[in-house]
Design a protein around this nucleic acid. Structure first.
Length: 578
DNA sequence: GCCGTTTTCGGCCCGACTGTTTTCAGTCG
């Protein structure tokens, strides 16, 4: 029986949905595939169990038809609808839809008229001038497609941390079950909490490496074994992700973890430092050069101590000042998930969210939060039903009701405002004054010149009732480049006006990035963390934001929502004028 | 294709922006 998990089934459903859309199928038919895929990804039970128990229809969005298809899929590796659509359209068309500027309709034209089935094919066709004269493809569109292809190439290589981390954790669990294994962990960019990762590095401590190598080759979703030797095996998963598993003796585990966690730059600097002390560092330990005696290696702390420093947290290991800080024992005490007392950015069914305020509060209670802010879209974002004054009154009333009755985290009345072309926001001052917290963000104008875009953000920060600028650059990882902003000017204005900047924790945003965060800290700008959750389960995305914050050297004192509720209120910008 | 139901079929959100097919389709969110 083929091995499937929720993401791999979801990926197949998404492919069918995309191909159906390209083929011109009914909108609601292809959307139902995407809805089912999305629900399956977030569903807390495994698809194989659900299929075996006949409970797939428990997943919202999966009805009788899709349940039967999924059962067939997990039993046979395919299902009739998948076969039918992939015989009509090549599956590679899906990648073309990923190119910014290309949607299903244009992809269909490219396929039918020019036989283009891939991004490479599209690029060749553009270079050969074959698109000229094609209906719907003017000079400007063709020009934009070339840019889109570049962006596609630049962004597609690496996987999002949120897509990889759960899989890596399952591999680690599997490795720990292998006979003779003393310890196992993921290392590399994943352990450093990079926002995207190119592969998964696993380090295993065992005296019986052969058993570990065998277990690696047998991992679920292994498509291809690239290499498999005595202590190292590399595989490629069905999702195209490379996994490298390395086995060392338990006494070498710390050195191997240090070595494979990197970064390369961090390790180079460390080895230079070791050499100056008459030492040598490799994945097996720290050795004295003159007599080759091993002086450390069982633990990372031992390795770093041998080199005269305390252990820097993995998130800092980029050779950007952490080694000197570690030598001087003045490493920051980085933010931890447990420091977060509430989530300051989420949407509800009042706009484009899937959960109610009450459901979000229930999830927040699970997470141990003291408060949350409901921050639905403001009126000018009409495409998602942004809230007008009447809708606001209704929402405030229901929040008052929830806060008065029932227990759970306190709900703050928030809003996500739109920064318009002049840097103004959706409501007048008297309305803004009635929120507990107001975020403002860019939702348009992605191609604007730097000075124009920057002016909008600066203007918004001058509003005394805009507390936070949310997802500052608007980037979407692997999909949309950040808007071109004068970040320095933004930081200076934020500090001057006491406007907080949000670290948006949604996995494909993670906006601010690590560099911006360090800039903010340096400038004395306060940070908020918000998940931008569109359904209650996504409140769990906070962990990815905390990882990013740590990469940005952020400490609890830099973050507003580590404060208790009254402390938070007192520190929001509006407290100065209200 | 799912869902809810006034149980057997109709509803499923929609507006702004872009480029171009100059009156609107396609993309985006």
């Amino acid at each position: 029986m083929p091995d499937f998990d929720n993401p791999s089934v979801a990926d197949i459903l998404d492919t069918v949905g995309d191909l159906l859309e390209i083929s011109g199928a009914d909108k609601f038919r292809f959307l139902s595939y995407h809805k089912a895929a999305h629900a399956l990804r977030a569903f807390p039970e495994d698809v194989m169990t659900l299929a075996a128990d006949g409970r797939l229809t428990d997943v919202p969005g999966i009805g009788k038809k899709l349940a039967a298809s999924i059962v067939t899929l997990v039993q046979s590796g395919t299902f009739p609808e998948f076969e039918a659509i992939t015989s009509e359209l090549p599956g590679t068309l899906v990648e073309l839809v990923e190119v910014p500027g290309l949607g299903p309709k244009k992809v269909k034209v490219l396929f039918e008229r020019l036989g283009i089935v891939s991004v490479d094919g599209l690029e060749s066709a553009i270079e050969a001038g074959k698109l000229a004269g094609l209906a719907g493809f003017g000079t400007k569109t063709i020009e934009n497609l070339s840019v889109g292809i570049d962006a596609f190439r630049r962004h597609r290589q690496r996987a999002l941390i949120a897509d990889v981390l759960p899989f890596a954790e399952r591999i680690v669990s599997a490795m720990r079950e292998v006979d003779g294994v003393a310890d196992a962990s993921y290392a590399g960019s994943l352990r450093r909490r990079c926002e995207t990762v190119g592969d998964i590095d696993i380090v295993v401590a065992s005296e019986r490496p052969a058993a570990v190598m065998e277990a690696t080759r047998q991992l679920p979703r292994t498509e291809r074994v690239l290499a498999s030797g005595e202590t190292k095996t590399s595989i490629v998963t069905t999702g195209g992700l490379q996994v490298d598993v390395r086995v060392v003796a338990p006494s070498q585990y710390g050195a191997a973890m240090q070595y494979f966690t990197g970064s390369a730059e961090h390790n180079v600097r460390l080895r230079e430092l070791a050499k100056s002390r008459g030492l040598r560092v490799n994945e097996y330990g720290v050795f004295r050069v003159h007599d080759d005696v091993r002086v450390a290696g069982a633990s990372e702390d031992e390795v770093y101590a041998a080199l005269g420093m305390v252990t820097p947290p993995p998130e800092l290991r980029e050779n950007t000042g952490e080694i000197q800080a570690a030598q001087e024992d003045r490493l920051p005490r980085l933010l931890k998930l447990g420091d977060i007392r509430g989530d300051l950015h989420m949407h509800t069914t009042a706009t484009d969210g899937k959960s109610t305020a009450e459901q979000n509060r229930a999830k927040a209670a699970e997470l141990g939060y003291e408060y949350i802010a409901i921050t639905d879209h403001a009126v000018n974002l009409r495409m998602v039903g942004g809230l007008d004054l009447d809708a606001l009154e209704r929402q405030w009333e229901s929040i008052d009701e929830l806060n008065a009755h029932g227990n759970g985290p306190h709900i703050l009345k928030g809003i996500e405002l739109n920064i318009d072309d002049d840097g103004e926001v959706d409501y007048s001052e008297d309305v803004l004054a009635r929120f507990d917290i107001a975020l403002a963000s860019l939702h348009s104008g992605w191609g604007q010149p730097r000075d124009v875009a920057t002016r909008r953000v600066l203007r918004a920060m001058e509003n005394p009732l805009v507390d936070v600028i949310s997802h500052l650059t608007g980037r979407v990882l692997r999909r949309r480049d950040p808007i071109d902003l004068d970040i320095e000017a933004v930081m200076a204005k934020a500090a001057e006006t006491a406007t907080a900047l949000e670290l948006n924790c949604y996995p494909d945003r993670l906006d601010l990035d690590d560099t911006h965060l360090r800039m903010a800290k340096h400038a004395g700008v306060v940070i908020t963390l918000g998940t931008d959750s569109h359904e209650a389960t996504q409140l769990g995305y906070m962990t990815y934001g905390v990882g990013q914050a740590r990469r940005g050297w952020i400490e609890p004192g830099d973050v507003l929502n580590t404060l208790p509720l009254e402390g938070l209120r007192a520190r929001l910008k509006r407290a100065r004028v209200l």
